[in-house]
Amino acid sequence: MRPLKIQERELSWRTTPQIAELLDSIRTGCDNPHVEPVVLICLATGARWSEAEKLKPTSVRNGVITFSGTKSGKVRSVPISAELEKRLAKHWKQHGSFMHTITSFRRALARTTIRLPKGQAAHALRHTFASHFIQNGGNILTLQKILGHSSLAMTMRYAHLAPDHLQDAIRFGPVLLVVTAVTKEACPV
């Protein structure tokens, strides 16, 4: 019996201007002070919404966020900027633990021009991190570790976003070497 193949959903990710629009909507019209730091954590680390929302001040130290209680059950640590670390410490000191953020986030998103497939509102932040990571030249194996994927196949969904990912077929395939050698023999300089 063949396993049933289920069509993957499109991975939604946001452009830099869309990220700015979302953050502006949060800053100007959101009554929950916890939404912006949770969004920033997701965008900076590729964390799932629930992972970011559950963080405590003890999970952030020395430029690293440590996520526990993840979907896979594994603990993972992701570096963050010193600026984000300071911002989170200040937030927790002023406002306490993150709580009840998703509804306020969805309202802020609804005030933007951003449209996402149903059910992908907060998860699009994770995809946005991963997409920008690959587009900016990040390594797929490093991304796998950051996102906590147990299989590389899951992470490979982002490979098509690498600017020249298919160019490796030309650079690393044997034909280029053979053609170059034949051309040099046929047309000596």
Rank of each mutant, 00 (worst) to 15 (best):
I65R: 02
F105S: 14
N62K: 13
V64I: 11
S104P: 06
H95F: 13
S77Q: 07
G69S: 11
T58G: 10
E85L: 03
L84T: 04
I80F: 03
K71H: 00
R76Q: 02
T70A: 04
S81W: 07
F105I: 14
R61W: 01
W92S: 10
S104W: 02
S97F: 11
E85N: 06
V64Y: 08
G96E: 04
I102P: 05
V78L: 11
R61S: 11
E85V: 04
S68I: 13
R87H: 12
R61K: 06
S59R: 03
E85I: 05
V60E: 01
L55V: 10
V75A: 09
H91M: 00
P57Q: 02
K86F: 10
T101G: 12
N62W: 05
S59H: 14
K71S: 00
A82D: 06
E85K: 03
T58Q: 07
N62M: 08
L88F: 11
I80W: 06
H91K: 06
V75N: 05
R87S: 14
T101S: 13
I102M: 13
S104Y: 10
G69Y: 06
H100R: 09
A82R: 09
K71E: 01
S68E: 13
L88V: 08
K71W: 01
S72I: 06
Q94S: 14
P79F: 00
S68G: 15
F98I: 09
K71T: 03
K56V: 10
T103H: 15
K56Y: 08
G63M: 02
T66L: 05
T101Q: 08
P57S: 09
S81K: 08
K93V: 08
I80K: 05
G63R: 05
R76I: 02
S104T: 03
V64R: 12
F98V: 12
V75P: 00
G96Q: 01
A82K: 07
F67S: 08
N62G: 12
G63L: 06
T58W: 04
F67K: 04
G73E: 03
H95M: 04
I102L: 14
S77Y: 01
E83D: 15
P79S: 11
K74G: 04
S104R: 00
S97R: 12
T70Q: 01
F98Q: 12
R76V: 03
R61I: 01
T103F: 09
S97I: 12
N62E: 14
V60D: 06
T66V: 09
L55T: 12
L84Q: 06
K71L: 04
G96D: 03
E85C: 02
T101C: 13
H91I: 04
I80Y: 06
G73H: 00
S81Y: 10
K74W: 05
E85Q: 09
V75M: 04
V64N: 07
T70F: 00
R87K: 11
S59F: 03
P57L: 03
I80L: 05
H100Y: 11
K74S: 07
L55F: 13
I65S: 00
